[in-house]
Computed example of a mutant assay.
Amino acid sequence: MSEMLEKARKYEFIQGQQIKEEERPAFHITPYVGWMNDPNGFSYYKGEYHLFYQYNPYSTHWDSMHWGHVVSKDLLHWNYVPTALAPDEDYDKFGCFSGSAIELEDGRQLLMYTSVNQEKLEDGTVRDIQTQAVAVGDGKDYEKYDKNPVLTAKDLPKGASKVDFRDPKIWKGNDGNFYCVIGSRPADGSGQILLYRSKNGFEWEFVSILAKNQNRYGKMWECPDFFELDGKYVLLTSPQDMLPEGLEFHNGNGTLCIIGELDPETHTLKEQFCQGIDYGIDYYAMQTLLAPDGRRIMIAWMQNWDTLAYRCNDSGWFAQMSLPRELSVKNGRLYQVPIRELNAMRANKVEYNNVVIKDTRLTLDQIEGRTVD
């Protein structure tokens, strides 16, 4: 274990225990301490749901991206696990950015993430360079691959930026290969989604440009996810700098769902329907998993980059995840409902009817607690 990772684990263990349980939401995931953004590595592994997240344990503001980690049996009650990744290698010393997780054939869990370094230009300025790296572990401790990064600028299609090349989402294909989609910025300055393939999860090759924005929906497309659902192929992504279209896309940094057919020859998505995913102001960087019972379940960062200044900053932690949602496709639309595990929380019903509320001091027997539905 590197000194940087050990430091993060010690710090969060001490500081996280100072935050009382009642100072956190009952069901929404919060960082153990410090800052949280994008969900990462949402997966089912060794009988538990795992969720990693973009994490800065040392401050309630974005900086020095680590991977935080929580696990759950029911997607509602989460336990903290020590920090999974720290930016402790030359290729990721400016951050372990967003990514995903999958189980390998040998039973280990593979994490795939965006590793960020910087380069100095001729005029003396510096810029980020984004590559993709992997780490393997047992659900608690992870070791970075000694041949990282596994995808670099040489693996990009012509015109694609090595500055905006991030957020790999990995899955296992029906052909036995691993695949991942990655957000990219092409020469036109907008966004596109790249598709890559691997036989083992460590050695990758470019397959195609799966989908192109062509300056229709915002600019850079971040945090893509791609899966088959109810006979259709679904692409989820979070575009930056979106402009409203009627009732859609009012959040600036928003959400986009494209539903269509996959061309097996060209490996491109043929769009049929497009929609926003959430109409509130706090929903970004969605990620899904395929549950053991076949459900496609989605979670997201319950925050928006445009509203970060509006907050109370005395809690020791900042930001939280949405409640997970079950997805389906009907009549060309993405449908979302709360996970059915919530039903188990409803018991011992107490009901009052025709009660007149005259002031704020009304007390009703057995109506108490800190949660409400």
Rank of each mutant, 00 (worst) to 15 (best):
G124R: 13
T125Q: 05
T125L: 14
T125C: 02
V126Q: 15
R127I: 05
R127S: 10
D128S: 14
I129A: 09
I129C: 08
T131E: 12
Q132E: 15
Q132G: 05
A133R: 11
V134M: 01
A135H: 14
G139S: 11
G139E: 06
G139C: 08
K140L: 06
D141Y: 09
D141F: 13
Y142H: 05
E143A: 00
Y145P: 00
Y145H: 13
N148H: 14
V150K: 01
D155Y: 03
L156C: 02
P157G: 11
P157K: 06
P157Y: 14
G159S: 04
G159N: 02
D164S: 04
D164M: 01
R166K: 09
R166I: 11
P168C: 13
I170Y: 02
I170Q: 05
W171S: 04
K172Y: 01
K172S: 09
G173W: 12
G173M: 11
D175Q: 03
F178A: 00
Y179R: 04
Y179K: 12
Y179T: 12
C180R: 03
C180E: 03
V181L: 13
I182T: 09
G183D: 07
S184E: 10
R185E: 13
P186R: 15
G189I: 08
G191C: 02
Q192R: 14
I193G: 05
L194M: 11
L194T: 06
R197V: 10
K199D: 09
K199F: 06
G201N: 01
G201A: 00
F202C: 11
W204R: 10
F206M: 13
V207K: 11
I209S: 01
K212P: 01
N213T: 02
N213M: 08
Q214V: 10
R216D: 12
R216N: 14
G218E: 02
G218A: 08
G218M: 02
M220G: 01
W221N: 09
W221P: 04
E222P: 02
C223V: 09
P224T: 03
D225I: 06
F226A: 04
F227D: 10
L229V: 07
D230T: 00
D230H: 07
G231E: 02
V234T: 03
T237F: 02
T237A: 07
P239L: 00
Q240F: 08
M242T: 05
